[in-house]
Write a protein that binds this DNA or RNA. Structure first.
Length: 931
DNA sequence: GCAAGGTC
């Protein structure tokens, strides 16, 4: 069997289809992994890297005393499978193979992925022949040639990739751990560092600093308005920007009629058709359509997977010869682009345009199938149309412009105007994304005199450089060699998720700046694109066998050790610097009570906003627990309270915007305050004015303080405090009810707990006790289904009974026994005879009496007579001596309070029978026997 | 829990 290993499933399928020719390809799924077989060949796709590098075991604890971050530099590195299913399938197929061909992408990373596959094959089949197919596009021509000219794997090329992996891992992991530990950050708050992300972040920080330190300069622009035959002309002073106001004013004053046309230069300008799309230029063009980098890539990948466009991750801007451009044009015919295609076919430029970058990985992004707007939907269509039109434009002739440069003389002051007229639209006919702005000047002749309609002197200011937009940043990253076509847009996502940057255009956060500061001061190597450049140079040496992988990695290890010499010497200093710089990140604004800063605090899973004036100022705002999301400060500010808005963020969930924490605090407590009978709007306003927002604050205040604060007398204040206590109790019970219901009734779509509780409240059920005496119909009305309702009622009753007994003073151990005996309600203890309770529970009758006494007193009922243990035991013996009276009957007699001969003798048989169910005749017999 | 690089 001939096993062919491709880089991904989709290429495996295509390669199989091409190689099979007219033969049918059998597609088979082996546990989510597809294989494509024909003849004696089987093609299988990887998923890019199916193994990953990591440190050898023993380095998982970040805080280990012995395995410090520095020790990661020299830690052994192992490869471990990340796609286990693919790995095992490859190995299963390899055992049966007599030839294996590696058909991964034609670039460094592809060679490394190929070597990973090679090692997997070798591990199970050491003797099999393994060769390599190289192609830069999955077209029939390229694939056939590649398989007719199979070569060997280039181990030097793969080694270059491995060197990169090792260097990235040790620098990234060691520095990430060091900086995170120094700044005492863990979990989701770690501070990551990496060869690509750190220089990228540094550029964003640097740009922000330039903007902050920018000093605007005032300048003046002088222009005049004239016209010919009713056509307006605007001419600018040839001095351009005047930095000297006096000079500008003088020139303005000197601008007088006559205005004479001095010179006219006519020319032609070539407007070159755009070059084929690589990933970066595609992202830039898509961003003009309003798509973020990540979105554009996601849509492009979708189109690629469905066969509409070619592979969107490419560095190539030159169509390879093997690409059949005519065939692509033909597939586009007949659809929406029919007219444009026909025009391109008739006016085709001799050779398609080509960009500066040419590579072997993939062809430039181009359409591969025809589609309709309806089939794709708005956004995908936008991207598809862009790719199609760009492709058409690269085959179209250049546009041509006629240009005019005209100079004027206004009594000695020189002016100029430029005009442009589109002579030939060329590619612009099919690619309308960049506007062709014409400015047509009327026909003028030297010496001609024109009127001056207006002279205007505008004062302007120089502008700071702009922040990076995502697409601009991706361009700059590419210029600096940072990241790859596949990862650049993800790096931005990473910086955002680490909360190093925010917004669009991108701004660094305080954390982002603090980390770059620390690294710049103590480990500048990692913040500069230089590191990538050097790494690439070294990789180039490895590719050319001029240096070995180990040699390059060893050099890098030594450099990293020198970096750690500096870092470790300043560890605590680095830590404090970062912590001090980022403290502000948690600061929300001034405390309404005392004016100190309010700060978001996280303690375990709970979080709140507290005052930095604590403990003198105890003002605080509670926040939902961190299971709802971690509270962070966001940019917006509340105009009323001057506090930053707060947001809860959680992985995989939409952020929960709390808005102004104080507004939200006030709003969420108004309802509770209204529960106090004496609360009025006026009183509430006075309370708010003194920063008292919750019932618990009122309940916690001394009546005198409260009286002084809101200006009422002490009696009223005491009443308010009591009412607050009551409201607090109601709230406490309500929240208890909520937790109770949540345990038993599972939430469902459209039946949230909030909704159930709201419904229960409307039914007058506000706590567990009310629930225990409610009927099932009321629960049904509240939207709780019958089965859950019954369970809810039962549990509620059980809980209430237990509480009542405990409250009366019945100890917990006995309570369990009563529950086991099925006699655990206060009524049971009040109304059931003591002998019955004792026999059901096995508790000493004297102890039972004590409990019954407790409950009866609690309920204001008389306590029945005491029965001692000897009385009880003797009585039982007496009863059992009566002929025909067994244990079961004794237990039933207990129910009627009969426990010995004497009580039986006095009993009324009619009455006893109805209670115990023992036939009257038999009871008479027992009594008769005693008499 | 860490990087960057593939792929989805």
């Amino acid at each position: 069997m001939h096993l062919i290993i491709a880089e991904k499933n989709i290429s495996a399928n295509r390669i199989a289809q091409i190689l099979a020719g007219n033969e049918k390809v059998r597609a088979k799924k082996d546990g989510k992994v597809s294989t494509y077989s024909f003849d004696t060949k089987t093609v299988v796709g990887l998923k890019g890297h199916v193994v990953e590098v990591d440190f050898e075991p023993g380095y998982t604890n970040w805080r280990s005393e012995t395995h410090t971050p520095r020790t990661l530099i020299d830690a052994g590195i192992v490869k471990k499978p990340t796609e286990k299913k693919i790995v095992s399938l490859i190995q299963k197929l390899s055992k049966k193979a007599d030839l294996v061909t590696i058909a991964t992408d034609y670039d460094t990373e592809g060679e490394l992925i190929g070597k990973e596959a090679y090692e997997l094959v070798r591990a199970v089949n050491p003797g099999v022949r393994i060769n390599r197919a190289r192609f830069s596009a999955i077209t029939p021509a390229e694939i056939r040639t590649a398989f007719e000219n199979l070569t060997d794997l280039d181990f030097d090329l793969a080694s270059a990739g491995e060197a990169r992996q090792t260097v990235d891992l040790m620098w990234g992991a060691a520095l990430t751990r060091f900086i995170s530990l120094a700044a005492r950050r863990g979990g989701t708050n770690i501070l990551s560092v990496g060869r690509v992300q750190s220089p990228t972040l540094a550029m964003i920080v640097e740009r922000e600093r330039e903007i902050e330190s920018f000093v605007p300069q005032t300048y003046w622009m002088l222009s005049l308005a004239t016209e010919k035959d009713g056509v307006p002309i605007e001419a600018r002073h040839t001095a351009g920007r005047f930095t000297d106001h006096e000079a500008a004013l003088a020139a303005e004053a000197g601008t007088k009629e006559p205005l004479v046309v001095a010179d006219i230069k006519e020319g032609q300008k070539n407007d070159r058709a755009p070059t084929p799309f690589d990933t970066t230029t595609f992202i830039v063009a898509a961003s003009r359509l309003g798509l973020s980098a990540a979105n554009a890539m996601r849509l492009a990948e979708d189109l690629y997977m469905n066969g509409y466009i070619s592979y969107p991750r490419t560095d190539n801007t030159v169509y390879p010869k093997s690409l059949n451009l005519n065939a692509i044009l033909n597939t586009l015919k007949g659809g929406v682009f029919d007219k444009d295609v026909a025009w391109v076919q008739q006016n085709r430029r001799p050779v398609p345009t080509r960009g500066k970058k040419e590579s072997t990985d993939h062809p430039p992004i181009h359409p591969t199938g025809s589609a309709t707007r309806e089939a794709l939907g708005q956004d995908r269509w936008k991207v598809y149309e862009l790719v199609v039109r760009r492709f058409l434009a690269t085959l179209s002739p250049d546009a041509k412009w006629a240009t005019t440069r005209c100079t004027f003389d206004a009594s000695g002051e020189p002016y100029k105007a430029t005009g442009g007229r589109l002579l030939y639209a060329g590619w612009r006919r099919v690619y309308p994304y960049s506007e062709a702005k014409e400015n047509i000047l009327p026909v003028l002749a030297p010496g001609e005199r024109l009127p001056i309609k207006k002279v205007s002197l505008e004062e302007k200011e120089t502008q700071p450089p702009a922040r990076y937009s995502q697409s601009r940043l991706i361009q700059v990253m590419e210029e600096h060699g940072l990241g790859t076509k596949s990862t650049r847009h993800e790096v931005i996502g990473k910086l955002v998720s680490r909360r190093y940057v925010e917004g669009n255009p991108l701004r660094p956060t305080l954390v982002g700046r603090a980390v770059i500061d620390a690294l710049d001061n103590h480990a500048e190597t990692i913040t500069e694109p230089e590191m990538t450049r050097t790494l690439e140079e070294h990789m180039e040496f490895i590719k050319q066998s001029r240096r070995s992988r180990d040699d390059v990695v060893t050099e890098s290890r030594e450099m990293l050790h020198r970096v750690f010499d500096k870092l470790e010497a300043h560890k605590s200093e680095i830590g404090t610097e970062i912590m001090e710089q980022t403290a502000e990140e948690h600061t929300v604004g001034p405390c309404p009570a005392c004016g100190h800063d309010l700060r978001i605090r996280h303690i375990g899973v709970s979080q709140f906003i507290g005052c930095t004036g604590y403990p003198e100022c105890r003002f605080n705002i509670s926040l939902p627990g961190s299971t709802w999301g971690k509270a962070i400060r966001v940019e917006a500010t509340c105009p009323e309270h001057n506090l930053s808005h707060v947001r809860l963020i959680r992985k995989g969930a939409r952020p929960w915007d709390i808005g102004c924490p104080l507004c939200s605090h006030i709003a969420s407590n108004v309802e509770a305050l209204r529960m106090m009978p004496s609360m009025t709007d006026d009183l509430m306003q006075r309370l708010h004015a003194h920063h008292i927002y919750t019932v618990s604050e009122i309940a916690g205040m001394q009546p005198e303080d409260l009286a002084n604060t809101v200006d009422v007398d002490t009696k009223e204040a005491a009443q308010l405090a009591r009412e607050a206590e009551d409201a607090l109790e109601v709230l406490r019970r309500r929240s208890e009810l909520r937790k109770f219901v949540r345990k038993i009734v599972p939430p469902r779509r459209g039946r949230s707990h909030a909704k159930i509780i709201k419904n229960l409240l409307e039914q007058g059920i506000g706590d567990i006790h009310a629930l225990s005496v409610a009927d099932i119909a009321a629960l049904k009305k509240a939207g709780i289904p019958e089965t859950a309702g019954t369970e809810l009622l039962e549990s509620a009753r059980g809980l209430c009974n237990e509480r009542a007994l405990r409250e009366a003073g019945v100890p917990a151990v006995s309570l369990k026994k009563y529950q086991a005996g099925g006699v655990a309600s206060p009524d049971d203890l009040c109304y059931l005879p003591i002998p019955y309770l004792a026999s059901k529970t096995g508790i000493n009758p004297e102890t039972v009496h004590k409990h019954v006494d407790l409950v009866c007193r609690h309920r204001g009922r008389p306590t029945p007579q005491k029965i001692t243990k000897p009385m009880f035991e003797r009585g039982r013996k007496e009863l059992l001596e009566i002929p025909g009276l067994g244990e079961a009957t004794v237990d039933r007699l207990y129910l009627a309070g009969i426990y010995d001969a004497a009580t039986l003798r006095e009993a009324n048989p009619e009455e006893i029978s109805s209670i115990t169910g023992i036939p009257k005749a038999r009871l008479r017999d027992y009594i008769g026997h005693l008499k």
